[in-house]
């Protein structure tokens, strides 16, 4: 049975064709009198932030999925199809993050320029979750994500040659910002006592984060939010939390915290109080206007939450 609630990125890998977004000719702009700005549509808030950082105000930017939306399960509405069709450039995250949009983006690539930023990354930098299938959550590694700025600048320059130098420069600046942030985040995580550098979350979106900042990542539901966590998984995690004396576990807004509650109760029964370390941003940025409206803000907020949760007394 196919359900709209599917968050399983690995299962979405069926549409293998998605990996190759055609680089067709840039859509010719119907340069109406009023809208002279190139129209760019980004799929997720994370990608929209990247485009905004590189393009500034030189493009009219539209984000398909608003804050709080789970991209794995997102299906396009007829209005979305319309927005995409009228775009001069579509910027996607790729690596099957937008699982259900795969077919649509592929079709679109025949007419419009579609760039999947994460697919421009060197293959050896990606985490393989199944043969030929890669974890799409690359933005949690700030240094890796910084590599995605240049392809965006190139795509924008092709659309708007007059701004090429500006895009180039903004991309370089933003990449540098991300690299500085990367050092900052690593230093923050390093303040957590070594034995407690374990991030227990509801599901597995933080593998790149764990790899980049040297923190062990354990998802209650493993790779897929579709499968039910078995009792064996809960019991194993209770053991882990108690043995490693972890002071906190974390939840994500988009994923059920039921399992985490059961986990807390199990640890409590063994004499260990485990706090709810707070909610982490995963596949979507925060609401516009908040501190978490940009990726840099989200990364800082997540790391602050994690450090505060894991550094407390015993």
């Amino acid at each position: 049975m196919a359900f709209g609630s599917s968050k399983s990125l690995w299962r979405c890998g069926l549409s293998a064709g998605l990996a190759v977004f055609g680089l067709a000719t840039p859509g010719c702009r119907a340069a109406g009198a009023a809208d002279t700005l190139p129209r760019v549509v980004a799929t997720t808030t994370v990608v929209a932030d990247l485009v905004r950082q590189v393009a500034g105000d030189r493009v009219a930017l539209d984000c398909l999925m608003g804050p709080g939306i789970d991209p794995h399960g997102y299906k396009a509405t007829p209005r979305d199809t319309d927005r995409l069709a009228r775009a001069d450039l579509v910027v996607a995250s790729g690596l099957h993050l937008e699982g259900k949009l795969g077919g649509l983006l592929e079709k679109l690539a025949a007419r419009t320029r579609v760039v999947a930023v994460a697919e421009s990354l060197p293959q050896e930098s990606l985490l393989e979750v199944a043969p030929g299938l890669y974890d799409p959550h690359v933005w949690f590694d700030a240094r890796l994500w910084s590599l995605c700025a240049r392809p965006v600048a190139a795509a924008l320059a092709a659309l708007d040659p007059a701004g090429a130098a500006i895009y180039e420069e903004r991309a370089r600046d933003y990449a540098a910002t991300l690299e500085r942030l990367d050092d900052e985040l690593r230093a923050s995580i390093a303040t957590i006592p070594a034995g407690r550098r374990v991030l227990v979350t509801a599901h597995d979106a933080f593998r790149y984060f764990g790899r980049a900042y040297s923190i062990e990542v354990v998802g209650v539901q493993g790779t897929s939010t579709d499968s039910e966590a078995g009792l064996a998984d809960i019991n194993r995690l209770v053991g882990l939390v108690v043995d490693r004396k972890l002071p906190a576990v974390f939840v994500e807004t988009s994923v059920s915290d039921r399992n985490v509650q059961a986990l807390q109760e199990g640890a409590q029964a063994r004499g260990r109080t485990v706090a709810l370390g707070g909610r982490l941003y995963s596949d979507s940025l925060g609401a516009a206007g908040s501190d978490a409206a940009t990726l840099t803000g989200v990364l800082r907020a997540n790391v602050a939450t994690i450090v505060a949760g894991l550094s407390g007394d015993e």
Partner: peptide, 26 residues
Amino acid sequence: LSGLSARGIPGAGGLEQFLLGHTAAL
């Protein structure tokens, strides 16, 4: 259910567990 997940209504996560059960989380 799919309407909820597409609209990203906060806190809706986990309702899909009622499709196949979630015994372990009791």
